[in-house]
């Protein structure tokens, strides 16, 4: 088995005394897989991602990240391997300047300041945002914030990237730029999005979640061209696939 992998076996999740959000999910991904996670609103995409980093712990079944079980005692280990990009960049970025925010994780992991600086520069170069290094977060546009959000997790040098709606509120140019950056990252990626065109451009595999279950799991091109499957699960064909 490869070094970098995610294994979920029969995982179900419900908020306290609530209805189950996810039911009997079995999912595996490894190495440089790029997986699109799609589904209608409330399907459980964000819950799925949050379970992988231990933000939702009261699940049943088993989740393992690189053989480490996701449980309260292993969260520090798990989280050092996974980078999570929030849907709302304003929640992700909480420091004053870009440098401080991107340096937050490496500093917390106790790296010496020289290494922190190296990591920050590397992450900013990977996202093409080196020119924003000293900029203050509140002065940045939505597109810039999204790229910096990605840089904040790349500076952790994670094995796995989880992204929740990365293209939300981006203009076409920033969206294209994001796609370019996502394709250049050779990590195991799971991208949850309603933007099916983005999934088509960045993921070779797609998992469709509907009513808490995996309704389909396969090559992106097959799933995103299956109009009947998509419509049955509250979705539509990607814009680029529609005729007329």
């Amino acid at each position: 088995m490869s070094h970098i992998h995610i294994d979920m076996e029969n995982v179900s999740f419900a908020y306290e005394k609530g209805e189950e959000i996810l039911r009997q999910i079995t999912f595996h991904a490894s190495e440089t897989d790029s997986v699109g996670l799609i589904g209608a609103n409330g399907a459980g995409k964000s819950t799925f991602l949050k379970m992988l980093v231990g933000l939702n712990l009261n699940f049943t079944g088993s989740i393992r990240i690189e053989e480490i079980p996701v449980q309260s005692g292993t969260l520090a280990q798990i989280r050092s391997r996974i980078g999570y990009v929030f849907q709302d960049s304003d929640s992700q970025l909480f420091m004053n300047t870009v440098y401080e925010d991107v340096a937050f994780a490496p500093r917390n992991y106790g790296l010496p300041e020289k290494e922190v600086e190296k990591r920050v520069e590397q992450a900013l170069r990977m996202t093409g945002t080196m020119h924003l290094k000293e900029k203050q977060i509140y002065k940045m546009s939505g597109g810039e914030k999204k790229l910096i959000s990605i840089a904040t997790i790349l500076s952790m040098t994670p094995d796995i990237l989880l992204m929740d709606e990365p293209s939300i509120a981006l203009d076409p140019k920033n969206r294209r730029n994001l796609i370019h950056i996502l394709n250049s990252l050779e990590h195991l990626k799971i991208i949850a999005s309603h933007d099916l065109d983005l999934i088509l451009d960045t993921c070779e595999r797609t998992v469709l979640i509907s009513q808490g279950r995996i309704a389909a799991d396969g090559p992106t091109k097959e799933i995103l061209t299956d109009q009947v499957l998509l419509e049955e699960n509250g979705l539509e064909l990607p814009l680029c696939m529609r005729k007329g």
């Binding site: 520090a76 989280r79 980078g83 999570y84 929640s91 992700q92 909480f94 937050f104 500093r107 010496p112």
Partner: peptide, 25 residues
């Protein structure tokens, strides 16, 4: 909700109740 998200974002980047700040200085 937002405060919780900010806190989660900190946790996911290694925050354990202490800012790993200025260690070199």
């Amino acid at each position: 909700d937002r405060a919780n998200e900010v806190y989660e974002s900190m946790l996911l980047r290694g925050y354990q109740g202490d800012y790993g700040y200025m260690r070199e200085h």
